[in-house]
Design a protein around this nucleic acid. Sequence first.
DNA 1: CACCTTTTGAGAGTTACTCTCATTTCATGC
DNA 2: GCATGAAATGAGAGTAACTCTCAAAAGGTG
Lengths: 231, 231
Amino acid sequence: MNNMTTARTPVPDTARRLPEAERRLSLRERKKLKTRTAIRDATYRLIKEQGYEATTVEQIAEEAEVSPSTVFRYFPTKEDIIITDEYDVLVEDLLRSRPADEPVLESVRWAIRQSMAMQVADTPEYAQEEMKLRTGLMVSVPAVRSRAMESMSVTGRLLCRVLADRTGRDPDDLEVRVYAMGLMSALLEAVLYWAERDYQDDVLDLVDRTLSTFSNLARRSPDDGHDILTG
Amino acid sequence: MNNMTTARTPVPDTARRLPEAERRLSLRERKKLKTRTAIRDATYRLIKEQGYEATTVEQIAEEAEVSPSTVFRYFPTKEDIIITDEYDVLVEDLLRSRPADEPVLESVRWAIRQSMAMQVADTPEYAQEEMKLRTGLMVSVPAVRSRAMESMSVTGRLLCRVLADRTGRDPDDLEVRVYAMGLMSALLEAVLYWAERDYQDDVLDLVDRTLSTFSNLARRSPDDGHDILTG
DNA sequence: CACCTTTTGAGAGTTACTCTCATTTCATGC
DNA sequence: GCATGAAATGAGAGTAACTCTCAAAAGGTG
């Protein structure tokens, strides 16, 4: 592959990320953002060419034009370079912006759609491709999948807090936690399903089906096709 | 700590494990089982004394009186020494032994109780302690927790197959997978909850509450305390 | 006992990750 | 513009989890 940029044109994709929020930051903060995305872009580029295992952190550092130390300062593990997303806070805000009497699953559905739309808006050309690469790695690389599950459980705790606020329960309540983790895990499974089938389905459609399955669990009638699981 | 056994008395706990199945195996197979449990016992012993991070595979090898190479031959990663369980096949058999028209969650509840009872029967003195150590490590060591989630998702696939057989669906059906993974993940969360609270609750009680939460998801009435989550 | 297969140990090598310290780069008050 | 302090970076050494290879040992079988 030689459609990659030469060293003379460092990290070209960088400029496209975080177009608005990037302003009004100190030079230092802007530089930090730049190296962060430079590292991530370099990682995606190399992995696309060579695969995950064949790509070492040293190579990533070189490609991103930083030292290996810096890579580890920005991302605690190699998997984090791929998985870490900054959208968790966003999702929490989105969830909290919904009326408290809306069914939880509706709020979640809306928050997912909204956050995906915003990601696409941030980086139109790359959002889809990056998401495919990421989920593909979740399927093929156990370490990445593990890290994704960890990250998902963090999002689960977030959902716990929202649920707790809505229902007046404790966020550490067993029932709250079980519900939140079950839901998050189901959603992750949907994404894995999407990647395993070579992204043929519409992700949002899979999300809808997942949420439906989740809300229909207790019904016994086999009339809508999503609810005969409980026997 | 000097209640540890000397090198002259190698792996004393070993003899207690797998008391029945161990016979009728060739000498080779028996030896393999022995080293396997020797490694595991050594690991638990060392971790109890020194903690997880401080315990290296080299130390484990020495304590188990094998070479480091052998340790890695038996367990692909250090976390696997702690997490790997041989009870998955057992659980599948247990699930399949139930009548096909029994509600799934009932079968699961029964299978969990049964498999726990059998583990206790296998190694009465150590079963509880080992389970506590293991779940404690899931809470405190991210790598172990990740590995546990991976292992859980394998069990989830198993549940998919059982569900598929029962409902006549495909085991790769999105709804089947989402249901199975959601349930498994919820159960794992219950165990983590148990460990986080210093094992004060009865695990089986937590399992029951988890399964109840799962089966009550779609109901709206706030009358039994487990079901107002869907708002 | 001899022959073949499986298991083991020894050792070298890779790589992710950690820690420390000196150097550079940015922010700020003058 | 410049001095001073703080934050970010780079360089390098070190650790430990794995991987691979190959020769020695042990088990199974005629």
